[in-house]
């Protein structure tokens, strides 16, 4: 299970302020803290902090990689900002994200290949998030076909079947789980799968519980990565235990500690 730390995001006030004042300290502190929590990658999202997204994302990349060698996930809807960010990445990164619309695919896939990056593909188009698993799956198929067409290695494609909050769209939960399971049958080798996990509990009470239960359910159905709170210890423990129970890592008494340290 790949934990992608979600905390470096301009939606949070401390990061927003850091971006506006160009103060690297809060960003770097969160980079280190999330790594210690168990993050294997870090999501970087400028959020609504500043008008110049291009410059801001580039700055986030530069200051984050001064503090850590984790893989960076460049999170923006602006491909120009992502490309400028990729240019300054010292290690291969992940593009977050493209939808399954043809015009976005034609930009995102060549970009991923040019910079040897991974790519998160969302199972949606202009008309929004599908209600059922079948429609999600047809978008997933478009993304898999695009990987084949443009020559992106399948293990570098992360498909996100898009979960919505439990208190808003409860009926989406089982559809996402069903989609996860079926994505793994689309090709051999199969693409990876990812979820923005915290979204499942947005606006709900007892968020951590909802997050970690959905994580366990997802893992059992082929979920490979989550953008999540890497400092939610109970969540990380579920990820570590899930890997052991799915026989993805060899059991040892220190399995939680080892999950965090790798």
């Amino acid at each position: 299970m790949i934990i992608i730390g979600e905390r470096i995001n301009g939606m949070f006030n401390d990061i927003k302020k850091a971006i506006q004042e160009k103060d690297p300290k809060p960003v770097q502190e969160w980079a280190v803290k999330q790594k210690e929590g168990g993050a294997e990658m870090l999501d970087l999202n400028v959020g609504p902090a500043v008008p110049d997204k291009v410059e801001a994302l580039k700055w986030l990349v530069e200051v984050t990689q001064e503090a850590t060698d984790l893989t960076l996930c460049l999170d923006s809807t602006n491909f120009k900002a992502i490309e400028e960010g990729l240019k300054v990445c010292k290690l291969p990164a992940v593009i977050n994200s493209t939808s399954a619309e043809r015009e976005k695919i034609e930009i995102a896939f060549p970009l991923a290949i040019k910079y040897n990056a991974g790519l998160i593909g969302l199972t949606m188009d202009k008309s929004g998030i599908p209600k059922d698993a079948d429609t999600r799956l047809s978008f997933a198929m478009e993304l898999v076909a695009a990987a084949d067409e443009f020559g992106l290695p399948m293990e570098d494609l992360y498909i996100d079947p898009l979960i919505l909050p439990a208190n808003v769209a409860q009926d989406h939960g089982p559809e996402v789980i069903k989609t996860l399971r079926q994505i793994k049958n689309l090709s051999d080798p199969a693409p990876k799968t990812v979820l923005g996990l915290s979204n499942v509990s947005q606006g709900c009470s007892n968020r951590s519980l909802l997050n970690r239960v959905f994580l366990a359910m997802g893992m059992a159905n082929g979920l490979d990565a989550v953008i999540a709170d890497a400092n939610d210890e109970a969540l990380i423990e579920v990820a570590a235990a899930g890997e052991v129970l799915l026989n993805q890592s060899v059991y040892c008494d220190s399995f939680v500690k080892m999950f965090k340290q790798r």
């Binding site: 060899v250 040892c252 008494d253 220190s254 500690k257």
Partner: peptide, 10 residues
Amino acid sequence: DINICKQLNI
């Protein structure tokens, strides 16, 4: 025992 093997290395 693979589990003890790993734990001892840790």
